[in-house]
Write a protein that binds this DNA or RNA. Structure first.
Lengths: 185, 185
DNA sequence: TCCAGACATGTCACCTTTTACATGTCTGGC
DNA sequence: GCCAGACATGTAAAAGGTGACATGTCTGGA
């Protein structure tokens, strides 16, 4: 039993434990792929961050390594300790989530611009949100179609949350554009 | 005319330029306060990040320093170059906004928990969103009441966006709780 | 007069994240 | 047989961000 009280976030660790817990043993390469294609709408990391973190996690006993597959491939498996740690984080951790958004910063400073400029910025923000919305919906469609195990719901709720947030952003932009230039509504 | 193409975000710089542009000359201490009380719902920074950044910005000619007020106080004023830089960022910069949210990560991994545990996590996320909603609404009320200059709208749209996002999160949590345990709806 | 507390600036160590560099293996198609 | 491209792992420098430490000044109220 570790004495950690989650004063620090260690979200990368949790994300990796989560993926290993759901999909079973995997290599750093596999996990990097999953970061790109699945969990990336809640957390991101590249391989240069993932490989060293996996090494530390193995040293801490949260996962084990099966070295030397085909191409120097290393397979990581979550341990009982790792599973416990993950569970405890999910149940106990109070999320901090400081907002740090360039888009919101542009929204904040929008009144510094002329009306036409502001409308341009808003349509750019709308376009970005629409792209994101389309991406998330495509992902959800794929997820629903595949539907393999009983664990298919992993990521589903977060996907739904992301879709709702994108819709909200689009709505906000339309509303704000109408407020800035009633004619363009 | 600088040749920067905003490949890097430099949002802290922009936030500081924005505050200096709107409220006029200010000290690092003043700006730190404004980060705490006003812009903090779109970007955060402590004085240990702000002081060195102001020094760099002065070296880059974006602001000037009037040294030695009452208590070693230094007053920074935005220059023409700084104003231009700010304007160009607002008009040209395409926001990146990678999502990195502990709350969304918990949502992602929610199906790893039992129904009662998941409902607990959801009510914690709801409580956090409600607190944030209350904070943002209080801020908006203050803003609307004061209403001093014609520049009072700075931050207003971002505040609206934040409120909408908080409402969306609360809605999502209610919906998700009902999906996990139809009885608790 | 003293002193708590706001005012005010700064540094440093540490952690996380990004980007670039560096290297090597296996497979499928031409 | 070769070679492009996916597979696979790593390191390192730099930038961004957090938290603690360090120091000193001014003001209002007891």
């Amino acid at each position: 039993m570790s004495i950690l009280r989650y004063d620090d976030a260690m979200s990368l660790r949790i994300a990796l434990l989560g993926l290993l817990s759901v999909s079973g043993p995997a290599s750093g390469y596999d996990l990097t792929k999953k970061f790109e294609t699945s969990i990336n709408y809640v957390w991101q990391a590249g391989h240069s961050q993932i490989y060293p973190e996996l090494a530390k996690m193995a040293a801490d006993g949260l996962i084990t390594v099966e070295p030397e597959g085909p191409r120097g491939r290393k397979i990581y498996t979550i341990t009982r300790e790792g599973t416990d740690e993950l569970h405890r984080w999910l149940v106990e951790r109070v999320p901090t989530d400081p907002v740090r958004s360039e888009g919101a910063l542009q929204a904040f400073l929008l009144p510094l611009l002329s009306a036409p400029e502001a409308l341009d910025v808003l349509s750019r923000l709308t376009a970005a949100a629409e792209t994101r919305l389309a991406d998330l919906r495509a992902l959800r469609a794929t997820k629903l179609a595949l539907h393999e195990s009983d664990q298919w719901k992993i990521g589903y709720y977060a996907l739904d949350l992301g879709i709702r947030h994108a819709l909200t952003t689009i709505d906000w932009a339309r509303h704000t554009a109408a407020e800035i230039d009633p004619g363009s509504a």
